[in-house]
Design a protein around this nucleic acid. Structure first.
Lengths: 221, 221
DNA sequence: AACAGGAAGATTGTCGACAATTTAAGTTAT
DNA sequence: ATAACTTAAATTGTCGACAATCTTCCTGTT
């Protein structure tokens, strides 16, 4: 899966990645408490590294911590989802606009190639696309913006939360092909160096995505 | 000064606030290295709390850390400033739009009152306005958006960086009164519950602000 | 029976010491 | 003299133990 490898050098990194993965995938349920001692025995590391990992997760808005009390995994709610997608719409719209201005010709070529390769998968009904392919697409555009703050906020901050909502609500939906068409239009706008259109299409794309996941949320709650 | 009191409960909190303050105000110069041992003796606390404070500063994008090497205060650059104001324009524009929708009547009344009180200060040429008053204004609108992600990103993330640029470039400029007029128009749009106009005015306001600080940066570099 | 106060247990916060890694200096060989 | 290797110093990463705080349960009083 992972296209952009965050490589773990320190022990805290490993704990952070593992903990994040387990939370996003629901192995550790949302809303549950994170005990430092418990996790340190489970992961076979000292409490200090678990503590550091939890602190990082707090910075990602994946856990909430209260001083002298402890940390809890955030709980998913319709309001939280809406807030999340509101900022995502704004930030990714901006990313698409900047990408149309700043992506190199090579990067745009690669992006088109990615879409072509995914085209086959979509036709052959591989729903692998939904998860990884969609993330890959959005990820490249975010990087294409060349804005480090934007990249940091989206990649380190919001995206794991987005994935958390998706995974835990079981997103294998009928939106695969239509989302793919939207991706195509966005790439076309970027290829034409049309920032305004790219932003608008991206915002719309994310709004659709929000509506889709929102409907799922209604059912599963 | 501080309108929104972040109260320090733990020892790490205090270290974090103090360190952030010293960095933002340039007491610790940008680009310099942060030695954990050095700071722990200087602050009279253990290395663990300094370490935790530095980790939090990293999450704010105020320091950059490399594993097994150490942390450095970020260095200010024209590119960094532009990137910062790009996202600020997008996020605060969004905040203004949401504020026009979600602020309570009471909050809007308070906002108008704030502007009236500042009107006197501006006329009496108190340049106190520039720093605290401007921050207070923007801060209220951000909170008025009622979007927790947005609030977190701006308040915990970007704003201290913005202040860092301002303080270290010595922002006592001729923009005081014109900025005040822009604030007035924005509040008017919010009072009229006009989200689109509020967003547009806020984006323009921040663009002006960027141009202003950008000119300063040209001179002082 | 309900509520306030206080001990006991558990959890987080802080500390100093040790281990691992990087950086710098010093030495040797080409 | 330069380059590569080795070694030593300094810095960061990790650990286990102790201190402070919160939570829970128990006791006693109204």
């Amino acid at each position: 899966m992972e296209f952009f490898q965050e490589q773990a050098v320190t022990s805290s990194d490993k704990a952070f990645f593992r903990l994040r993965k387990e939370i996003v995938e629901g192995v550790i349920p949302s809303g549950s408490k994170l005990s430092e001692t418990e996790l340190s025995t489970k992961y076979q590391v000292s409490r200090a590294v678990v503590r550091e990992a939890i602190n990082r997760l707090e910075a990602c808005n994946i856990v909430e911590r209260r001083a002298n009390v402890g940390a809890r995994v955030v709980s998913l709610s319709p309001e939280g989802l809406i807030e999340l997608y509101q900022v995502r719409e704004s930030l990714e719209g901006m990313a698409a606009r900047l990408a149309a201005q700043h992506m190199s010709a090579q990067e745009i070529t690669d992006l088109n190639a990615l879409l072509n390769s995914q085209s086959h998968e979509v036709k052959s009904a591989e729903l692998y696309y939904q998860e990884a392919g969609d993330l890959d697409f959005h990820y490249r555009i975010i990087l294409g913006s060349k804005n480090s703050h934007l990249i940091s906020m989206l990649v380190n901050g919001l995206y794991h939360l987005v994935r958390m909502y998706r995974v835990q609500l079981g997103m294998a939906g009928p939106r695969v092909t239509s989302a793919f068409d939207e991706h195509k239009h966005i790439v076309q706008a970027i290829s034409n160096r049309d920032p305004e259109l790219a932003e608008m299409l991206m915002r719309r794309h994310i709004t659709y995505s929000k509506n889709n996941i929102e409907a799922k949320l209604q059912n599963s709650l």
